[in-house]
Amino acid sequence: QTVEGPKVSWKLSTWGNPRAFTKGIEHIAEVVKERTGGNFTIEIFYGEALSKARENLDGIKLGAFDAAQLCNFYHPGKNPAWMIFTMPFLPIGDWDVREKVTRAMYKHPAFIADMDGWNAMPYMSALLPQYEFLGRGEPPLKLSDWNGKRVRAGGGLGLAMEVLGATRTTVPATEVYTSMERGTVDAASFPYTYAHAAYKIPEVADWFTNNMSPGTSECGTVFSKTSYGKLPEQYKALLEDVLDEAYDVQVQAYIDIDKKNLPDFKAKLQEILYTPEQLAEFQKVAGTPVWDQWVAENQEKFDARGLLNDLLAEIEKAQKGS
């Protein structure tokens, strides 16, 4: 025990079972409890026990719990700025870059403003991995091969795929396996390799993309501003202190999963690696136009152009640093 302080017990609302996605916040809960000698506890409620995932922000605003996990794509309208991470072909596939950029964005005024209305404040990203596609049938070796494919892809990623001539379908994640096996979906995008494996997609797929990085989602943990405001300074400092190692744990969890999954993928499926030229073309044809469209649609809600520029600047900075 290194931190003295009063008894504080927090409730954190999330969905699903304990898994790689929750490793980071589990680590935080553990360390915080240990360092305060059990005085500050964060109890994690899984399986939507406290709230439906899509209503977690409502629960925070109402003061029903002190912290919650959320994903931006569950409710685009609740966090318009956070949707920027769904923009296709952002060059943030590298873990180091992704972590640096995301941590910077969690301090961005637009990100904070989105949460403000919900009496929430961004704390830690779950660093959901980049999406990749798994598919069945003809492998999309070049840009034009995506033309006519039926793909499961949402948000900016879906728009990008439409630009490439693909048809978007919205199949619930649990139904993707069947749909692909029966040929009603040709390719499905999921956080890679993590969610592909969870939904058993490799069993029915023929190929996978390994460096397309067509987009991602931003999921993470937010705190209630009221609950955070009541914390003594030493607890606030502690929460800040443990972030570095928690991010390490989080990233390692995904790397471990990749280590397990990737050999399977490579053994069973055809790996598709695009050349830097092809990726640049993807970005030019289906990336930038979608970014611009997104900016145009959101500029009146907040400074979307400014946010995009800031994000690109952070990416560049992080790439140089690594």
Partner: peptide, 16 residues
Amino acid sequence: IGWDAGAGIVGTIPHS
């Protein structure tokens, strides 16, 4: 969890 939070959460459930 108190009146506002408790009743507030209950109010979200029928729709959600």
